[in-house]
């Protein structure tokens, strides 16, 4: 690998840009592929397909084997509600290499003391979400139980490309939430995208266990998209 190729890869990763590196295994010849622009040839097209699946791997091209290494930006997790569950959830998500933002206009909740080192926003959730680059690699989870905070976040998330939208709350709370969102103009089909009650059913009780169930559900959704 040329030093300039390494530098370009490190810079792209630091900036969260989608990029792929194609390497010919026979001799190490290499080519960087910008995944944000339409592919210019067959190798580029294969790289774009692999990026959607988030799957690096070898491809055969004119009798030669190229390895496509896909460098997708990290998964983004937006947590609405700086509540107790958000504390272990933000820590665990950071351990997984995800980019975490916690939104809560209630400054007593969204404090540096409660969330050391976590990116916090005290804007209203819909405004805060509009200020974040929500992509097809972003998950949005609402945890406040308060329609005043959760609903604007969910409405914004439903209009975004987020691959996962989850809302904490009992089945009864969730049914009432769906009624409100339907009244706000979202179709029942679109509302199916909301995972509610959020998380895999693993009998979680403590905030940390609930965080595990939420993360497991998000990972399942992330990897299901690749299958």
């Amino acid at each position: 690998m040329r030093p300039e190729t390494l530098k370009a890869l490190v810079a792209a990763r630091a900036e969260g840009r989608e990029i792929a590196l194609a390497t010919r295994l026979a001799d190490g010849a290499e080519r960087l592929i910008d995944l944000t622009v339409p592919p210019s040839d067959e190798l580029g097209a294969k790289a774009v397909g692999a990026a959607v699946r988030d799957e690096s791997g070898p491809v055969e091209l004119q009798g030669e084997t190229w390895f496509l290494n896909i460098f997708n930006p990290p998964v983004g997790l937006v947590i609405v509600g700086a509540v107790h569950i958000a504390q272990p959830l933000s820590r665990m998500a950071a351990t997984m290499g995800w980019t975490v933002t916690v939104i809560d206009p209630r400054t007593a909740f969204a404090s540096e003391a409660r969330f050391p080192g976590v990116a916090l926003s005290t804007e209203w959730p819909d405004e805060a979400l509009q200020g974040i680059a929500v992509t097809s690699r972003t998950a949005v989870v609402t945890l406040t139980h308060d329609p005043k905070l959760d609903d604007p976040a969910l409405r914004t998330a439903l209009e975004s490309r987020a691959f996962y939208i989850g809302a904490l709350g009992s089945k009864k709370t969730h049914a009432a939430r769906l009624e409100r969102l339907e009244a706000a103009g979202f179709t029942p089909a679109r509302l199916m995208a909301i995972h509610g009650p959020v998380g895999l059913a693993i009998g979680a009780r403590t905030p940390a266990e609930i965080a595990v169930s939420i993360l497991a559900d998000i990972v399942r959704a992330l990897r299901a998209a690749a299958r």
Binding site: R13, N69, F71, P74
Partner: peptide, 11 residues
């Protein structure tokens, strides 16, 4: 997939 710091360490 590339969640470790191998490239950054190499640089």
């Amino acid at each position: 997939m590339n969640d470790d710091r191998a490239l950054e360490q190499a640089a």
